[in-house]
Computed example of a mutant assay.
Amino acid sequence: MEVRIFKPAKTAMQSGRGKIKNWVMEFEQTDRATPDDLIGWVGSSDTRKQVSLRFDSKEEAIEYAKKHGHTYTVQEEKTRKIKPKAYADNFAYSRQEPWTH
């Protein structure tokens, strides 16, 4: 079974970074999703795509995958660059462009 190990990105719906501390292991989809003839809902017989395991570190997730015989792909975590900003910088004398409405 193929699994993917990654660190999730921050959601766009909130400013907090609470749920991105853990590494996540998800199973890759093996069965194609098909629409139901009667209702039209999309479904699949593969229930593993609903499973998501969380680990404290990348090494723990890799150990778990090896222990259970899964082949894994690791997506390295992307570091974000924080540019310090201040409201006073909008009115600084050394500003390149004049501040206007």
Results as ranks from 00 to 15, higher is better:
4 R>H: 02
45 S>N: 08
74 V>D: 01
64 Y>K: 09
15 S>L: 11
94 S>C: 09
98 P>V: 04
55 F>D: 00
2 E>V: 11
46 D>T: 02
75 Q>V: 12
79 T>M: 14
99 W>A: 15
73 T>E: 15
86 A>V: 03
2 E>Y: 06
91 F>V: 03
60 E>T: 04
60 E>L: 13
88 A>L: 03
56 D>T: 13
32 R>C: 11
36 D>W: 00
93 Y>W: 05
37 D>Y: 05
84 P>Q: 04
85 K>T: 13
11 T>P: 01
69 G>K: 09
87 Y>G: 09
34 T>Q: 07
85 K>N: 05
17 R>F: 13
82 I>Y: 09
30 T>W: 06
57 S>T: 15
2 E>C: 00
61 A>Y: 00
22 N>P: 01
15 S>H: 10
33 A>F: 15
22 N>W: 00
97 E>D: 08
61 A>I: 06
81 K>W: 03
76 E>V: 05
96 Q>M: 14
59 E>W: 01
58 K>T: 02
55 F>I: 08
58 K>C: 10
41 W>M: 13
78 K>V: 14
75 Q>M: 07
63 E>S: 14
80 R>E: 06
61 A>C: 07
26 E>Q: 09
33 A>L: 01
30 T>K: 14
96 Q>K: 12
51 V>R: 02
86 A>C: 05
96 Q>H: 12
37 D>C: 10
25 M>K: 02
53 L>C: 12
101 H>S: 13
13 M>H: 13
37 D>T: 09
90 N>F: 14
28 E>S: 07
62 I>E: 09
38 L>Y: 03
1 M>S: 10
83 K>E: 08
30 T>C: 14
3 V>C: 03
44 S>T: 15
59 E>C: 03
55 F>P: 02
100 T>Y: 02
31 D>C: 11
19 K>G: 12
39 I>Q: 11
60 E>F: 02
35 P>I: 00
